[in-house]
């Protein structure tokens, strides 16, 4: 945590600028060159499409991931240590309930929530509280609410079911994990260590260097550290999502649309595979509105916002596989129940 020696500055900066320029130049020159060399030859369609799909998921999510990391840096560096944790109610249930509403102030979609939830944990939240945030924030945030309302209005209770369902699921899962005897064991070893170091250094900063400069470099450091963990996960998640899209016919799922039970399950499977951000998934599913029963759509909107291929890869940076399986099963069962309820009752 020592500030770098001043004389290293020019070297690092020069090297950095050169690397940035090199990538720019490569980007500018390589595609035209390749096109010329391989004129007429193309990647096979499916390979090409897999790549296009993966890139589109990455380009779509990265700004949200960056935003999430920046907000997470704000929580860790710019706010006094533990200030959020102090101002929340002490009663665990009320506390988690208010944490699940924090998303209203941090309108990043689910991919940005992962770094933010990591930041919260470093900043003093318990594991179950962070899980609550992670599961509630994608749905209980202003952008998602607005887009869902734009897409569906008040039709078929879809908006209400989505909000209540998201709130309920996040709190139930949070409560379940709060009963865990040893919550640290839910985390990957690497992240558990980072948490301890993080909270330790957090105290250190309050005594040590204030000033804009050190805060900016801390922000930079958090940014670099978090991106180096999240980006590989995002790439892999997007790659897998793209592969499944290209090789599993979507029509298989659509064929199941009109049955009350199957429509719910098919839509959850679709949500899992498509991996669209919760901020916009309402528009996406609107185009299937005529094919599927409302319960299926609710299940899509609730389950897909919380769990999908890309999200599991991202969350794996923080939680053990075992924890993720448990979360997925509980969220899946509750979403399915919610969808069936909407189909049969509403």
């Amino acid at each position: 945590m020592h500030p770098p020696l001043p004389r290293r500055w020019p070297f690092g900066l020069t090297a950095g600028v050169l690397v940035v320029l090199a990538v720019f130049v490569l980007r500018a020159l390589a595609p035209p060159y390749l096109e010329e060399q391989l004129s007429g030859w193309q990647l096979p369609d499916r390979v090409q499409d897999t790549l296009t799909l993966a890139i589109s998921v990455i380009i779509e999510s990265v700004p949200f991931v960056f935003l999430g990391i920046l907000l997470s840096a704000v929580v860790q560096v710019w706010l006094p240590h533990g200030v959020l944790a102090r101002h929340l109610p002490k009663n665990p249930i009320l506390r988690r309930a208010s944490i699940s509403l924090l998303g209203m102030f941090f309108p990043v979609c689910e991919c940005g929530n992962v770094p933010l939830a990591r930041g919260f944990m470093v900043g003093g939240f318990t594991v179950s509280e962070s899980i609550t945030f992670l599961l509630a924030a994608p749905i209980l945030n202003p952008i998602t609410i607005i887009t869902t309302h734009q897409a569906f209005g008040w039709d078929g209770h879809i908006l209400v079911a989505r909000l209540l369902g998201g709130f309920l699921i996040a709190n139930v899962v949070g409560w379940l994990f709060s009963q865990h005897p040893n919550p640290q064991s839910l985390l990957t070893t690497r992240f558990a260590i980072a948490c301890e170091v993080g909270s330790g250094s957090g105290h250190g900063h309050e005594h040590g260097g204030h000033g804009r400069d050190s805060r900016f470099s801390q922000t930079t450091e958090i940014f670099i550290r978090e991106t180096s963990v999240i980006m590989p996960a995002l790439f892999i998640g997007s790659g897998v999502a793209a592969l499944t899209q290209v090789f599993i016919p979507r029509s298989v799922l659509l064929a199941l649309g009109s049955n009350p039970v199957w429509s719910v399950l098919a839509m959850m499977a679709l949500a899992f595979v498509v991996a669209v951000c919760s901020n916009v998934d309402a528009f996406f599913i609107l185009s299937f509105g005529s094919t599927f029963l409302p319960g299926g759509i609710v299940a899509f909107l609730v389950f897909g916002a919380l769990i999908d291929i890309k999200m599991l890869a991202l969350m794996r940076t923080t939680f053990t596989s075992r924890t993720l399986v448990q979360i997925t099963v509980v969220v899946g069962l509750m979403s399915a129940a919610l969808g069936l309820l909407v189909n049969y009752v509403a």
């Binding site: 770098p4 290293r8 500055w9 690092g12 900066l13 090297a15 950095g16 600028v17 690397v19 940035v20 960056f66 690497r190 900016f216 470099s217 922000t219 930079t220 450091e221 940014f223 670099i224 550290r225 991106t227 180096s228 963990v229």
Partner: peptide, 17 residues
Amino acid sequence: LVSAGFVRRRSFEVEDA
């Protein structure tokens, strides 16, 4: 931020993570 990251030598160590 990525460029600023290059300024700090530490970032290279962290990148190994």
